[in-house]
């Protein structure tokens, strides 16, 4: 899932300073899972902003709504009868969601409340770790389902650097050595000899250098 973190409150306040009626819009997907933009977090932020406004003697009227997904037009359409009543929308969606809402309602000011961070997994309650960089050339099958692009600090494809200590990376001692994980898992699977294959450098052109990427499926299009 895509993970995000709420922006510092001072930054959010600066963006919405001139507005008196706000629609605070959450997303029920990725950002709900990482506890930054779901229904609960939307309510918390709305409450915080209302209390802050009261404290400063300002008027602030808010409405909270959470869409199942902020990046899908069918869900964004639910805002049609509502969005016009508010001065701006404070979106707790990821960057994709903020932009999608702005595309459907180009005249509305959509203010992002989150900083989108990485693609990751929930390691345990309250802990999310990055495990995919979206390189577009997935090699997980060669590396026992451990991504060396993301999880090896040096992005090595052909074996460990030799600098790990106690199974931890020498670049960041909090990070497990990805190559330790790869080798251990290949041993368990009895496929250690697959490491003898030499992997060429990644084709970064699949990820960078050509502007925003797209996927087009004619069988899915109307």
């Amino acid at each position: 899932m895509i993970t995000a973190e709420r922006k510092p409150l001072a930054e959010i306040k600066e963006s919405i300073a001139s507005y008196k009626k706000l629609l605070i819009l959450g997303c029920g997907s990725c950002v709900a899972e990482c506890a930054s933009g779901g229904e609960k977090e939307t309510a918390l932020l709305a409450s915080q902003l209302r209390i802050d406004a009261k404290k400063e003697g300002r008027t602030l009227e808010t409405k909270e709504m959470t869409l199942d997904r902020q990046c899908v037009y069918e869900f964004i359409d639910q805002l049609a009868g509502v969005i016009g009543e508010y001065d701006a929308v404070l979106s707790l969606g990821c960057g994709a969601g903020v932009q999608a809402v702005a595309e459907v309602f180009p005249r509305a000011h959509i203010v992002p409340a989150l900083n989108t961070t990485f693609i990751g997994q929930t390691k345990q309650a309250g802990l999310w770790l990055e495990n995919c960089r979206g390189c577009g050339d997935c090699k997980l099958d060669f590396f026992a389902d451990v991504c060396p692009v993301t999880r090896c600090s040096k992005g090595l494809f052909n074996g460990p650097c030799g600098g790990s200590k106690n199974e931890k990376c020498e670049v960041d001692p909090d990070t497990p050595c990805a190559w330790q994980l790869i080798v251990t898992r290949l041993e368990e699977r009895g496929k250690l000899d697959s490491l003898e294959k030499v992997h060429p450098p990644a084709r970064w052109s699949k990820k960078e250098g050509k502007g925003p990427r797209k996927i087009a499926r004619e069988d899915q299009r109307t």
Partner: peptide, 11 residues
């Protein structure tokens, strides 16, 4: 208890 309950109590 949720943090929201406390915020709403204050509000």
């Amino acid at each position: 208890i949720e943090s929201l309950h406390l915020m709403r109590a204050l509000e």
